[in-house]
């Protein structure tokens, strides 16, 4: 068993979840990976760096408990600890919300690094939810991170933006970047109407760390404000596997074909003939 509360100052990992394009699942990924790590006994702090358009609090179901936020911390209106919201469902899981009424220029990369250095003392994992785009919000989010999860969907526009982001991360000295392919639809891949996970990996040429199937349970989970990681749903299982791989464990990839019924298979044979 690994030491849950590691005391070494540099043992904590700071992971930025980024994508370039909006709406591909950064916030969902942040919430699920963070919750998954906390479920395994890690001390996790999620930081929403999307100033002006905060979402992570809603996805986590913690929106009613915000008092202070990231900008308050940076401006010295409160101590770091006061802005952290403890998730009562998972011991060890905390959220630092972003400010809704400010804009990206309220925080600088230098200030982000300072906040993260402070948080490193008490957390095993600090996960930053990056805003869409490549402007200051992105610069703020990546400033203190040493590892990145690049989220994309198997679509031309999302892959193009992911490629740009990977280039920018490389230019900023990132050594560890892993790819999460979100909203994959096996039925469309089989029809030849969607790029497969392998196709996307070939194009972006960074290591794959997870494939998340397109799953309506994600919407249900967001409605309820409870991340689905570790549950029975296909996406919940896929996210649980991502968490294991983030921890460096090797887990085989799920076969999403299980959802296809016997009847579909039988009729499928006739379609091919």
């Amino acid at each position: 068993m690994e030491n849950q509360f590691s005391q070494e100052p540099n043992s904590s990992e700071v992971i930025v979840v980024t994508s370039g394009k909006g709406g591909v699942g950064k916030t969902t990924t942040t919430a699920n990976v963070g919750t998954g790590l906390a479920k395994l006994g890690k001390k996790v702090c999620l930081i929403d760096t999307d100033i002006g358009l905060r979402n992570l609090d809603v996805v986590m179901g913690l929106e009613n408990r915000i008092v202070y936020n990231l900008v308050d911390v940076v401006e010295g209106n409160c101590r770091v600890k006061q802005a952290l919201i403890r998730d009562k469902r998972h011991p060890g899981l905390y959220l630092m919300p972003s400010a809704q009424t400010r804009d990206k220029s309220a925080v600088s990369p230098g200030q982000m690094i300072k906040v993260i250095e402070h948080l490193k003392e008490q957390f095993d994992y600090i996960i930053l939810d990056c805003p869409a785009g490549i402007e200051q919000g992105f610069q703020n989010a990546i400033a203190g991170a040493n590892r990145a999860l690049v989220v994309t969907t198997p679509e031309v526009s999302a892959i193009r933006d992911a490629d740009r982001i990977i280039g920018l991360l490389e230019a900023n000295g990132f050594k560890q970047m892993d790819l999460i392919i979100n909203r994959l639809r096996m039925d469309m891949v089989k029809r030849g109407d969607m790029m497969s996970a392998q196709d996307v990996v070939d194009i972006l040429a960074i290591p794959l760390i997870g494939v998340i199937p397109d799953d309506e349970n994600v919407v249900v989970a967001t409605n309820q404000g409870e991340p689905l990681v570790g549950g029975e749903s296909p996406a919940g299982q896929a996210y649980a596997n991502v968490v294991q791989r983030v921890l460096g464990r090797e887990v085989p990839y799920l076969n999403f074909d299980r959802g296809i019924s016997f009847w579909t298979r039988v009729t499928g044979i006739f379609h091919k003939a």
């Binding site: 679509e155 031309v156 892959i159 193009r160 490629d163 029809r191 030849g192 969607m194 194009i203």
Partner: peptide
Amino acid sequence: KSSCQVAKDRLKILL
């Protein structure tokens, strides 16, 4: 040509 192949070809040039 499958739309998947079209997407891959377009991305290759684009990227």
